[in-house]
């Protein structure tokens, strides 16, 4: 039986989600308990709340703000360097392959309903919103805004992040009576944002990733310089437009194969009838010997036809 394209990606996404939240003890009833081991010194590459009862690693966005909002007001060299390294190696590959929240949104999008196509006039400016979130809510506010005790706040985690509500808030509140008693307006606000995110994911493909996610915005900054990148073989492309039609992130891989919006899901590669698209490491262009055998055969035939 032929394998469905994209099945491997779903397996990797799910496998990674389970692996990074494998602290089973945290989910057992009997009070809130999260993993407290050394592994939490390391951030996971995707969005994954460190207050999730199962989380084995730290959330990079939360960790970044934790260093920014500390009393000493330090720049987060460790986390920023770590995320920059991942971005430089693979761009937004993490978004497409190693993000549990991305997978959840994709599964919600599979619910059979009419899908919403956001007009370009609204979609394109809205894409910049995630950069505003990154620079204002993750960098500027935690760094500059201080309480009277000289401590900052993780603004993004506190007021926006639906991942924390889904992976941390809801399970911990369900598992613990005393926490349930302290619920206030903030939890209701974050729950509302989560519900909006979940409902919109049914109709729009990965809306959080497209418009809000500061981690995706950060990785997106490195798409044009990353080692793993998309290649488009101009000599093979017939401009059929199938790749652009298939791309659910609304990228046109023929024009901008390394767009900041591409999550390296490879769906365009799978659908290209001429095998003009590929993904690889730090190649400047597709060399002759790397052209797909089908294309090479077609070129040979066309040369023969011309010589006749």
């Amino acid at each position: 039986m032929a394998k469905k394209p994209g099945a491997l990606r779903k397996c990797v996404q799910a496998g990674w989600g389970i692996l990074s939240n494998a602290y089973v003890k945290g989910f057992l009833p009997g009070g809130p308990s999260i993993y407290k081991g050394e592994l939490k010194k390391i951030c996971v590459p995707g969005m994954n709340c460190y207050s999730c009862p199962g989380a084995l690693g730290s959330c990079p966005i939360g960790s970044m703000q934790a260093v920014f909002d500390a009393r000493q007001r330090k720049f987060a060299f460790y986390v920023v360097g770590y995320l920059a390294l991942i971005g430089l190696l693979a761009g937004r590959f993490v978004c497409g392959w190693l993000c549990l929240f991305g997978l959840i949104q994709e599964l919600l999008y599979k619910i059979p309903t009419p899908k919403l196509k956001i007009p370009d006039k609204i979609d394109k400016p809205l894409r910049y919103f995630k950069y505003v979130i990154l620079f204002v809510m993750v960098f500027a506010l935690p760094f500059f805004v201080r309480s009277k005790y000289g401590i900052g706040e993780p603004f993004f985690c506190k007021y926006i992040c639906p991942v924390g509500t889904l992976e941390g808030g809801i399970p911990l509140v369900l598992l613990n009576d005393s926490m349930r008693a302290t619920l206030g307006w903030l939890f209701r606000w974050k729950l509302l944002l989560l519900i909006i995110c979940i409902l919109s994911s049914v109709f729009i493909y990965r809306p959080f990733c497209k418009y809000v996610c500061p981690l995706g915005a950060f990785y997106g900054l490195f798409q044009k310089v990353s080692l793993v990148r998309m290649h488009m073989d101009e000599s093979a492309c017939v401009n059929c437009g199938l790749c652009a039609k298939t791309c659910k992130m609304n990228v046109n891989p023929c024009k901008t194969p390394n767009s900041a919006e591409c999550i390296r899901c490879r769906e365009c590669i799978n659908v290209c009838p001429k095998h003009a698209l590929s993904m690889g490491i730090c190649d400047n262009s597709v060399s002759k010997d790397k052209v797909h055998p089908v294309i090479q055969e077609e070129k040979r035939r066309s040369k023969k036809d011309v010589s006749r």
């Binding site: 709340c49 207050s51 939360g62 506190k158 509500t165 941390g168 808030g169 926490m179 206030g184 606000w189």
Partner: peptide, 8 residues
């Protein structure tokens, strides 16, 4: 447990 993250 990050109280801000979970909305408490």
């Amino acid at each position: 447990i990050c109280m801000e993250c979970i909305g408490l």
